[in-house]
Design a protein around this nucleic acid. Structure first.
Length: 584
RNA sequence: CGGGGCGUGGCGCAGAUGGCUAGCGCACCAGCUUGGGGUGCUGGGGGUCGCCCGUUCAAAUCGGGUCGCCCCGACCA
């Protein structure tokens, strides 16, 4: 059995001496299954929106998760350290993220009025360490990691511990001399993450992702498929194509309409695609949406999209730059002389037009006339407007076609557990973290950044393994492995046997939760199920008399009656089997 | 930030046409009881009704403000 580093954990806990405090009723704020179980079971306690205490039971789960992560990161050569949770403004200004991060960053001032933040992530700090400690290509590659509290002032914390403002993250950073080295470090992380989530007993998928604010390099997410997931995963029903919807590329079908002359149509009060298509009794596919983007100091762009698709703004930002935003109503009115809903590509200049590739060659389309209460019909894209580029700019829809084969794409909800990506030289250049290569040439370090949300693993286990009664921890992350449930502990022979077995189980490296409380049986049964301890052994007067003992495996529900002399051996076997299954 | 909801012992809730010691269930403490699925009984402890201001002889209850929390959406590493 693995021991947790730095912490001494008693392998037995009497439940009535512990802080374990289960609730009979669901706390009213809990909506998701994991939130309900974690609160009711006394694993966590909320202090403020998105801020939680991990009570002893929950903390044991977190510690066991961290331990698995440590083992797997150490295995790929990671070196654990601990960086500060607060950092001065200056270092964040060097990368530009003091401004880019916006309101998601918790900020504070010290007594002298100097600005600090509570770090939402640590690329800048790593680059700062690297620029003074890494000098030569001989110092590379490196993998550094920490398990640390992160702070993000989320607009809307949700689902208890799943989207919170203070959370524990394992973040690691790779430093390499060149892109090939980065590829290798990235692959090592991909393997380590796969082992970590498997060992934690979770069902997950590895999908292509988009980098967002972190940079545009390759990135993959490890996503658990659960209903409450905030991410959407696109997957092909025929091949192994998997992508976050933010990064997914679907193949759609171009729809052709009759060519006809341009004409204005009166569309009073009809602004949205649905309103206009209903009003004119045409398919949504016959409409073109026009979305106007502006950026300071850059040429504005007008994006055209077929009416039945939504725009993926990530693509706009990745292709054209992060400073682009969808224009405000005021900007639109100023530029087009019409309200949003009535604007279009025809007859206006001063911006570039980029169109979704499903619009290529389309004729007879309907779009805004740049005049309030009017649209135009009969737009022939090649004849009437000048499109700079055709690009895939849309979100995938259910049943779009796969980019890699002839399969169909499905969309499911998922929860992001981990994310790995290739940063490249973004931070090393801006923070001047460089090394001398073997020819004496100064080069920026090539970085990668890799995160795992520890609480999300805990919550996800509850979502995936739990039921109406409570959770069913995978044995590898369970706070205790065996629930020793004692009925009528006041009877001497019962108590003696329970104590004897308790000692034997501990001798066999079991983490035992001993429930010999002098309360009614039902409470103990219900608690054992709510707390989700993998194996339950019952010692009762009846069982002592008959010499046969009940052993329940929580997750499978398998119930065994075991002869007295075989009980400890059987418990060991069940535990081994549970661990074995995780490594399959 | 837009929409909706909620703040009354640790948890879940009732009380709201202003009115007299603010209730119930669970949990907690003491005792008895029961003893394989939240047992029964008795006796206890615990709440300035989120906060502020106002109206009133009188405010948990009415009015205004404010803070917090939850849900839906928008936003986003």
């Amino acid at each position: 059995m693995t021991k947790v580093l730095f912490y001494i954990i008693l392998d037995v806990m009497k439940i009535d001496k512990s802080l374990i405090n289960t609730l009979r009723e669901d706390p009213k704020e809990a909506e998701s299954r994991s939130h309900r179980i974690l609160l009711r079971g006394g694993f966590i306690k909320q202090l403020a929106s998105g801020v939680h205490t991990y009570l002893p039971l929950g903390w044991r789960v977190i510690l066991r998760i961290s331990n698995i992560i440590r083992e797997e990161l150490d295995r790929i050569g990671g070196q654990e350290m601990l960086m500060p949770a607060i950092a001065p403004k200056e270092i964040w200004q060097e990368s530009g993220r003091w401004d880019e991060y916006g309101d998601d960053m918790f900020r504070l001032k010290d007594r002298k009025g100097r600005d600090y933040c509570l770090c939402p992530t640590h690329e800048e700090i790593v680059a700062d360490i690297a620029r003074t400690t890494v000098r030569s290509y001989r110092d590379l590659p490196q993998i550094w990691y920490q398990i640390q509290t992160k702070f993000r002032d989320e607009l809307r914390p949700r689902f208890g511990v799943i989207r919170s403002r203070q959370f524990i993250m394992k973040d690691s950073y790779s430093l390499d001399q060149d892109p090939a080295g980065l590829d290798h470090s990235f692959e090592l992380h991909r393997q380590a993450y796969t082992r970590i989530f498997k060992r934690c007993g979770l069902d997950f998928e590895v999908v292509n992702a988009s980098g967002g604010l972190m940079g545009a390099g390759e990135s993959k997410e490890f996503i658990a498929i659960v209903d409450i997931g905030e991410a959407q995963v696109v997957s092909c029903n025929k091949c192994d194509y998997r992508a976050n919807i933010e990064a997914a590329v679907g193949v759609g079908v171009t729809e052709l309409f009759n060519d006809e002359a341009l004409a204005e149509v009166h569309t009073p009060g009809k602004k949205t695609v649905i309103e206009v298509s209903d009003f004119l009794k045409v398919s949504r596919k016959n409409l073109i949406k026009s979305i106007f983007f502006t950026a300071p100091d850059k040429k504005s762009i007008l994006i055209l999209l077929r009416g039945d698709y939504d725009i993926n703004e990530n693509i706009i930002k990745n292709i054209f730059g992060f400073s682009y935003r969808a224009a405000s109503s005021e900007e639109i009115i100023r530029f087009f002389g019409a309200e949003p809903g009535y604007i279009g590509p025809y007859g206006k200049e001063g911006f570039d037009i980029h169109a979704d590739d499903l619009l290529k060659g389309t004729k007879g389309m309907i779009t805004g006339a740049n005049k309030n209460e009017y649209h135009i019909k009969g737009l022939n894209i090649d004849r009437d407007i000048k499109v700079n580029k055709y690009l895939n700019l849309r979100y995938v829809k259910q049943a779009d076609h796969c980019p890699n084969c002839d399969g169909e794409l499905n969309i499911k909800n998922g929860l992001e557990l981990g994310h790995i990506f290739k940063l490249g030289t973004k931070y090393s250049i801006s923070l001047n973290a460089a090394f001398l290569d073997e020819y004496g040439e100064r080069k920026p370090i090539v970085m990668g950044s890799y995160g795992i949300g520890l609480e999300r693993i805990m919550a996800c286990a509850c979502e995936q393994k739990g039921d109406d009664k409570g959770t069913a921890w995978p044995v590898s992350i369970a706070p205790y492995e065996l629930y020793l449930l004692v009925l009528n502990p006041s009877e001497n022979d019962v108590k003696e046997l329970a104590d004897k077995w308790n000692a034997e189980l501990i001798a066999n490296q079991f983490r035992v939760l001993l429930d010999d409380r002098d309360i009614s049986a039902g409470i103990k049964f219900n608690d054992s199920e709510l707390l989700g301890i993998p194996i339950r052994l019952i010692v009762s007067p009846k069982a002592v008399k008959q010499g046969r003992f009940e052993v329940l495996t929580r997750e499978s529900g398998e119930l065994l009656e075991i002869e007295r002399n075989d009980v400890i051996k059987k418990c060991c076997q069940i535990r081994e089997e549970l661990y074995r299954k995780l490594n399959e």
